[in-house]
Design a protein around this nucleic acid. Sequence first.
DNA 1: GCCGTTTCAGAACGATGGGTGCGAAACAAG
DNA 2: CTTGTTTCGCACCCATCGTTCTGAAACGGC
Lengths: 194, 194
Amino acid sequence: MARPKTYTRPEVLRRAADLFARKGYEGAHLAELVEVTGLNRFSLYKEFGGKEGLFQSALEAYLETLAAMDAILTRDPPGMANLREFYRAQLAHEFPNGCLAINTIREKQVVPPQAFAMIEKFAASAEEGFRRNLAAGVKSGDLAKGTDVDALAKFLVAFNMGMISYGIVAQDDSDRVRIVGVIERMLGLSAVRK
Amino acid sequence: MARPKTYTRPEVLRRAADLFARKGYEGAHLAELVEVTGLNRFSLYKEFGGKEGLFQSALEAYLETLAAMDAILTRDPPGMANLREFYRAQLAHEFPNGCLAINTIREKQVVPPQAFAMIEKFAASAEEGFRRNLAAGVKSGDLAKGTDVDALAKFLVAFNMGMISYGIVAQDDSDRVRIVGVIERMLGLSAVRK
DNA sequence: GCCGTTTCAGAACGATGGGTGCGAAACAAG
DNA sequence: CTTGTTTCGCACCCATCGTTCTGAAACGGC
């Protein structure tokens, strides 16, 4: 009973997230967003209320694509096998233009406060996920008894941010594999049975 | 024989670098730059030729402040003691608003290409610095014989990027110390005599 | 085939972006 | 004090930003 849309919401959000990741919040101009997403200015405002709304929706959708990886850390039973799976998934996930979530952290003073709050929560939950599995690792003996689990969890979050950033300057795609290999050896994951 | 400047070039570059780090390249508007640096628009153009020139000069100056840390990695003799000193210096260095160098990587598609090239070179030299000392560490027996020095060097660069980014979301300043502690234990630096 | 509704494409809007021009101000030299 | 030179403060450009508006286009229902 009306003219059909020429776009699908998920696809729009994917493309918008990609542009935001590449250019940053201010760097992604509306004209480009219109061009890249395929929906026109009118619909953009009707659907999302403007650039800010589009950004938040895009970020939200982006975080959901990361949620699958995050969910691995909450699997039962907790333990090092989950970490092993996490890094496997991490390597399978492509970050051709960096990560919108990490970029948003760096743009703390530019993006809408709610957006930053979303990321903060996401990072905290990832950290908790690491902690949970590391603690189980200590209990099971996969990790040394006196291990500072909390520090190690923070370390892994920081490392993850860094590895994805490194991907932008890396010459080779295999670099990521080798870097993750260091972490796997460090955590003794090669020895963990799946 | 003329009206004196109300600014000093190094101070201007420091403040400009700080604003660029906080807001990003596009996010740092000329009006703010003028306000923060203290020099007026006229002088800004005379000295730096415009926003782009100011950015590159500020980035260059910023990299020089990091050069002292980088220089530790080139000290003779190479070895794990240099890495130990590096992380000591790293912890002493404050990154209250993130790191302009790392942000520039993220803004690859926004900043002038020369600026990105500068960072790429800097990162490569840091990686080479790590490699050099790690290789010496293997030779001296501080690191296990079969260690993949190249992968480990890349890993340390990535980790560094991540730790600084993590600082933005970290609740506590002590988090950095604990995170670096993980690396130090991993590399066996606590056992390395200074 | 017409009508009501919704989306589309593009023009137009005010506000603000980076960049420029100009007269007044602040020195040093004589 | 006068003069020459350089910076300063501010008003002024044009382009572009995000946003809004308008009329035509594309459907489903009757």
